[in-house]
Design a protein around this nucleic acid. Sequence first.
DNA 1: AACCCGGGGGG
DNA 2: CCCCCAGGGTT
Length: 352
Amino acid sequence: MFFTTQLLEWNHQHNSRTMPWKGIKDPYRIWLSEIILQQTRVEQGQPYYERFITTYPTIQDLAAAPDEAVFRLWQGLGYYARCKNMLAAARQVVQSYQGRFPDTYEAIQSLKGVGPYTAAAIASFAFNSHHAVLDGNVFRVLSRYFGIDTPVDSTAGKKEFAALAQELLPAGQSAVYNQSIMDFGASICKPQQPLCPQCPLSKKCVALRQQIVALLPVKSKKLVIKKRYFYYIVLDYKGQVFIRKRTGNDIWQNLHEFILLETPSPITVQELQASSGFKALLQDVFYTVQGISPAFKQQLTHQTIHSQFLLLSAAKKPAITNYMAVPINRLNNYAFPKTITDFLENKSLGLF
DNA sequence: AACCCGGGGGG
DNA sequence: CCCCCAGGGTT
């Protein structure tokens, strides 16, 4: 088939994308790289990958690690459910598979945090198993080359593209082919300004012939961005501050935070102190205001979060439930969201 | 099927 | 400001 042969030929001639996990056969390293790279750019994920491999050279090392140490190593990478699931999967492999990474697509996908894409990637890269990968690159390349306008974020689209991708997969070459199509999508058939003039597939590309390259792939869902206002109370008592671990499935699950009050709209510090939530939390606390931080703004994919930190010093030991008192110089043992990390590292505020 | 989850980079 | 990124889990 023209598409497949041209793609493999392009890979043979031009591909020079080098990554530490490329071409290796160790399923642990492949799995780790794939988890880190979910919805994450290669340049952003690579340093994390290297730190994880250095810190946890084997899956046994990772499975035996304390949760908090792993979350701390993951800090800043985002999508923290990945970290939780990664730990669960490592322990799954050690306990249910005697530490030997499963070698079939079905068993691999049964691991926590491993879906269709990641299972196909591991199965093909590590075991040359006949499963086509379907990621953002593949959606883009196939939708353009074959001129398919089915929305890629629909169930019908996923089925259609998955079947096509599998059909194109050459026998016995799944590892190199899967690697090729993703590299090709990342370097030639890019989301913006694709390099059509030098594309080895341009001769038969439907989207190029119809001049709809920039319109593909089609996505149907529209993004709604919420605004949220966080007020963090940094309550200090004799060099210790109160933090807790976020639970549930909301943003920043399993990361830590200071005492938090959230409001639907921005308010002043005076209004905050007068609010019922503030009084309920700090009603029995005798404190003095030590400082007020500037407003921090963080733009996330689906929400904009404005945060402000209010530094309080307690005169007597506060009775705050659900939070733990941690010495300030021990805060670096805990994983925090980017906003709090930025706050803690901003020495110019003179807060600590 | 709809919705949720971070952070960074580029135009 | 927008979009995209080697997606997956929950409801």
